[in-house]
Design a protein around this nucleic acid. Sequence first.
DNA 1: TTGTAAGCGTTATCAT
DNA 2: ATGATAACGCTTACAA
Lengths: 396, 396
Amino acid sequence: MAESLTDIARKLNVAPSTISRAISDPSKVAPKTRAKILSYVEKVGYKPNLSARMLRMQRSTTIGIVVNDLSDSLIAQAANIMQDVAFKRGYFPVLLSTEESRTKERESISRLMMTNICGLVIIPSSATASILENINIPVVELDRSTNTNHNDEFRMDDQAAMQMATRYLHEQGCKHIAVFFGNIDRISSFKSRYLALNTCAQEGLTYSTFFVKGVTSNELTSTARLITNIILDERHAATASAATSAGGHKKSKASADHDSGSGNGNGSGSGISVDVDTKSRLKELMLPISYDLSKLKSELPIDGMIAANHSLASGMVQGFNDHHLPLNKDIKLFTFDHPDWLSVLPEDIPSITHPLNKAADLAMNRLIDRIENKYTETVEARLLRPQLLSSSHIEE
Amino acid sequence: MAESLTDIARKLNVAPSTISRAISDPSKVAPKTRAKILSYVEKVGYKPNLSARMLRMQRSTTIGIVVNDLSDSLIAQAANIMQDVAFKRGYFPVLLSTEESRTKERESISRLMMTNICGLVIIPSSATASILENINIPVVELDRSTNTNHNDEFRMDDQAAMQMATRYLHEQGCKHIAVFFGNIDRISSFKSRYLALNTCAQEGLTYSTFFVKGVTSNELTSTARLITNIILDERHAATASAATSAGGHKKSKASADHDSGSGNGNGSGSGISVDVDTKSRLKELMLPISYDLSKLKSELPIDGMIAANHSLASGMVQGFNDHHLPLNKDIKLFTFDHPDWLSVLPEDIPSITHPLNKAADLAMNRLIDRIENKYTETVEARLLRPQLLSSSHIEE
DNA sequence: TTGTAAGCGTTATCAT
DNA sequence: ATGATAACGCTTACAA
């Protein structure tokens, strides 16, 4: 068994309190005894019992970090940074991932509260507000918002980001842009990005919004892929009908599944086929926010696509690969989040860097400032400016 | 403040011990009082103080999980799985990431010990063995090994994996394969994969091994990229000189294009004049394990490349992109780990799936079995069979 | 400067 | 079936 403070006190013939002082407040003990104690403590590798200390002091140095999805490398990096900051400032971070599950979120927070955490950084979901209702420790919201204005918040300036995205595509000469979102009712960042779109009127630019079904990152990706395939099919059908529609093009894996059902139906020339079939298929893939398919087939074919996060972007890219279409040629792509895998693509995809690392740093530092009462202003929602990353647009 | 058990006892006019029993051992209390207590407890949302409980019971249900790199999505997924298993079996997982830093590893483990963890799953480094020396709780090693035979171990069967890799490339008609490793002295999986290579003699197949410098994933990637660029330069120079057979040292100009055009690769500097220069540059990029450059320039040009993990693979792919070379055409690529980003590439790269998720599940379950004395056999090193993933090789 | 003693919130062992 | 009591290891007045 590990030695306790009292054990050591007996061994050295001093009072337990002396040992305690020697460790925590060296000035309050005679240098000589202090040296004796510390050397012995060092020798036997004494580790104070944190449970006892926390119980006695009625406070802990444990900070909870609750994130939505650790498999997301952006989030994982942010988590790392927060752990670092916490460590450096003398706190002990406890990291939990909810996988976008409310049940898990509830369990995790509940369990964290039992362990006497002294603060919490959380990437909230729409369920978080009610879970946090009776919590009386400092909380900081990262990346998303509960919209309660109860806590400090650090996240990207979605409006600025969307502005950059649309302006960029506008400059590239795009006319009609498809924008992919996830569930805007569940995830605040999708919502704010969607709302931002309304402020992004660019001359001669129109948008089609797609609300992709799915909760997890993987679900978003595969659904986005399917939708992209449908869009590319549509486009192909449209251009092909202008010329002669010569059978189907070559597709691989994923597009094969969804095609098997429709089998290109009544294809055989005759302008734009699809219609009913495509419509119903699209409906299945999207959230029940009405989308007017006719937009998709307006005179202006889609020549730009924006993914509101990197999971959606991954699906888009896979869709283009399925069609053996080069990225950024006929249709310009643009993605939020600047995911790692961009570096491995043969073509550049312009992107908005998500300043999540910076936000994470600020969030953890703010939390600790709150804990230590070094920051006592009213709550603040800090929006971090994103950055446009693109080989053909190095300004900013 | 949160209510304590004693507070509740006072409110209900019962002894604290009765409350405690009502919660933890319902059979030991009268159904009537039990109901009264539980309903009240429910109402006020009583949360037991875990510090006090741990202090009293001299044990905890906290399990430490120490991983090397959370930004690695494979690792992050494994961490998730372990957290799940732990939760489901009534334990509380605490996740920490070391970023391959020994200091952090030491700190993390030390801190975990103070919090009274009852078990530990760790992805060990070469420093772990000494850190764990005086630990007397169950430990399970995941993915890598301390080679101490003190703990249960769950990881991939590296030998089988390397066999699959080389056999596959052999079947594809490769003759001379470059194999990229990281630091084999620091990371056991690199070592075992390297050692496995010796058992992989395939008829008419030769290997050149590259030990890539770097600790973090990013470092490995960027160094691997540079080395790949050099290899491709060499190859280009070789074929060019063969074609013109100008029997001279004209190769230097060959690589000029990609250097200027390759965008953000942190500049491989000015034109490449092979031999001396290349040799010294290669040396800088690789660990001081002697490598005979002449092999690289033997009659057999490299026609296959194996990356011993996905960070190295990422660098390779970027190298090919820098040269605007299609993957898998003249040089077949092969990677360990089956990283996510493969799905986003236009070309398939065959890969070995790392059965880390399975291993993580087994590891956490074994740990808890040890904690609960449900498993008392001597330590076991379980090697999990990897799987070959390739579009042109669906067997296995 | 150091020792003494009380108490943090639990649970286990007794006694009732 | 329940209540009283001690103890887990530590910190912190307060006393010496």
